[in-house]
Design a protein around this nucleic acid. Structure first.
Lengths: 91, 91
DNA sequence: ACGATAGGCAAGTATTGGCTTGCATATCAA
DNA sequence: TTGATATGCAAGCCAATACTTGCCTATCGT
């Protein structure tokens, strides 16, 4: 999962899905090109989505010939759970 | 910062510093070897610590010929801030 | 001063990962 | 069915990076 987050393009994909869930691959490509200057090809984005799906950060459902992608922030909770704030504890 | 988290050894270093702050480089090397099976050299761990420091996740202070390392979870808050839980929002 | 301890710097290697290219599959509309 | 749309698969290329090796600097104890 940490690997999935270690890429600005993938983080932007999560941003866009957080704004509008259920986007298709082509929609994501368009949005990334429009709102950010991402000029990646469809295949590149597809591979990014595969990484995000493997990490459990994105779920997908086929709808005919399209595939709708949804952002699932659940795995992010593991981060806060692993390193709870200990700032007040030590000098 | 996400790059810094994308490495199990570095994550283990944060774990150990969260347990006991202010460890030196050699202490961290020992702990990683003892508690986890990490057989990395001192230089490898040193480079990991440099990455963690660049990410702001670790601070350090020189104490004579030793260098004490402290875990700072503050940058992690950016994750929760960037993707607040939207699960309840959409189908 | 001298040896020992704690750490830093830098170059080389080898693996990983992001991206492209080319072709294949599946669904819809006419 | 046929063409167009939407996506999947796989091999190859290139840059980033984790790790090692070897040497150097600084601090402490005696």
């Amino acid at each position: 999962m940490f690997k999935a987050l270690d890429d600005e393009t993938r983080r932007l994909i999560l941003d866009e899905l957080a704004v509008r869930n259920g986007q298709t691959l082509f929609e994501i490509c368009s949005t990334l090109t429009m709102r950010h200057g991402i000029g990646s090809t469809r295949q590149a984005i597809s591979q990014h989505l595969a990484v995000l799906e493997d990490a459990g950060l994105v779920t997908s459902e086929r709808r005919g010939r399209t595939k709708l992608h949804h952002f699932d922030p659940t795995p992010l909770e593991a981060i806060a759970r692993r390193w709870p704030n200990t700032r007040k504890a030590d000098p």
